[in-house]
């Protein structure tokens, strides 16, 4: 039951359609409307970064921030790769005992790593 010459062709069409709609809205609101309707009165104060109304205390904003964010990203990579590894298993599982025990051992390995990470305090948010 296919309505298309290639199953992924409509995905491409929707992607292009979304791009066109997005670009059209941006062009209308950013290029066409300012020509006659939209106000445009930039002032230096208006264009400074917003810090509750006072002048910015430091130059720029890209200073050091918590290492915790990197830790979360690393943990995400680990666990998401495992989720990606589980997807083909879940599709092919179909209630076979032959794939159940290997996957349970995989879960066991995962659990060891998870307990280790928890024990080291990587899941505590400190900031």
């Amino acid at each position: 039951m296919s309505q298309s010459v290639h199953p992924f062709l409509p995905v491409l069409v929707l992607f292009l359609a979304a791009l066109v709609v997005g670009a059209a809205i941006l062009v209308i609101s950013g290029k066409i409307l300012p020509a006659f309707l939209k106000p445009n009165h930039p002032r230096p104060e208006k264009l400074t970064p917003y810090e509750c109304g006072v002048p910015p205390l430091q130059e720029g904003a890209r200073h050091r921030y918590g290492i915790q964010f990197y830790l979360v990203a690393m943990l995400f990579i680990l666990f998401d790769v495992e989720a990606a590894f589980l997807l083909p298993w879940a599709v092919q599982y179909k209630g076979h005992l032959g794939t159940f025990w290997p996957m349970l051992s995989f879960f066991g390995t995962l659990l060891v790593g998870y307990i280790y990470v928890w024990g080291r305090g990587a899941l505590e948010w400190e900031c």
């Binding site: 409307l33 309707l37 939209k38 208006k46 264009l47």
Partner: peptide, 8 residues
């Protein structure tokens, strides 16, 4: 659509 675009 009509609000001023601010580019810091």
């Amino acid at each position: 659509l009509l609000k001023e675009d601010i580019l810091p």
